[in-house]
């Protein structure tokens, strides 16, 4: 919805994503088998953390300079605003992350088809993170220590996404089909898309008051 003019802003969360994921081999050891086993989980957990890192900025700036007020005072419904904000977050956080993820897949010596599924699961999963995250960002708007608080509120809600996302990759590596995981993930995406913007809009109104 709004141009992301500050390049530095969104690059940080991508670097963060890569760095967190790269720490695990250093802590665990370079054995390819172990890495292959933990790889999907690590990439997914890093993706969750990266989304949390970029979320507070989603609304904070607009809140600080007063544009959020002005946006709420436009004739457009607040739900559209919330949806637009989630979309913007996904575009600057989710899409680049998606493009970087194969590199991490190689780091963790994942086979090619697993990397493909990893990207697919991230493609379906990261919009859910953006949508749920917008609820959290709206609730914690303008509060002291909102970053930590946001993590506390939203991380438990991310659990299903993590399970099905990482599970899809595990399934394909175990030689079974990832289809059921991905379709469940898709179902979560659809239902989140239907519910989250409304709640985020309500939360925005509460927070701006």
């Amino acid at each position: 919805m709004l141009a992301a003019r500050r390049r530095g802003d969104w690059l940080t969360s991508q670097f963060f994503f890569v760095m967190v994921a790269s720490m695990f081999p250093l802590g665990i050891g370079p054995d390819p088998n172990t890495l292959r086993m933990i790889g999907p989980g690590v990439v997914w957990v890093s993706a969750l953390l990266a989304s949390l890192l970029s979320l507070p900025r989603l609304l904070a700036e607009d809140f600080r300079d007063g544009s959020l007020e002005q946006m709420l005072l436009t004739p457009q419904p607040a739900v559209l605003l919330a949806l637009g904000k989630s979309l913007a977050h996904w575009l600057i956080y989710g899409v680049p992350l998606l493009l970087i993820s194969p590199i991490l897949g190689i780091q963790f010596s994942l086979p090619a088809e697993a990397i493909a599924i990893l990207m697919l699961s991230l493609l379906i999963g990261t919009p859910i993170l953006s949508l749920l995250g917008s609820v959290g960002a709206a609730l914690t708007l303008g509060l002291r220590g909102s970053g930590v608080l946001l993590t506390l509120l939203i991380l438990p809600l991310y659990v299903p996404v993590l399970i099905f996302g990482a599970g899809a990759v595990d399934a394909i590596m175990a030689g079974t089909s990832a289809e059921s995981h991905l379709s469940l993930l898709g179902a979560i995406l659809v239902s989140t898309l239907l519910v989250a913007p409304w709640i985020a809009a309500a939360a925005l109104k509460v927070s701006i008051e």
Binding site: L2, R5, R6, R64, D65, G66, S67, E69, Q70, M71, L73, T74, P75, Q76
Partner: peptide, 30 residues
């Protein structure tokens, strides 16, 4: 909201945009 305009303590303008871009953005949003 179409017939009311509000200016609060905060100006509601984007620091990274020029004044013209700001006005046009606000118009677009409205």
């Amino acid at each position: 909201h179409r017939e009311m305009a509000y200016i609060g303590h905060l100006n509601g303008i984007k620091d990274d945009l020029t004044p013209i871009e700001n006005l046009r953005l606000a118009a677009q949003l409205a």
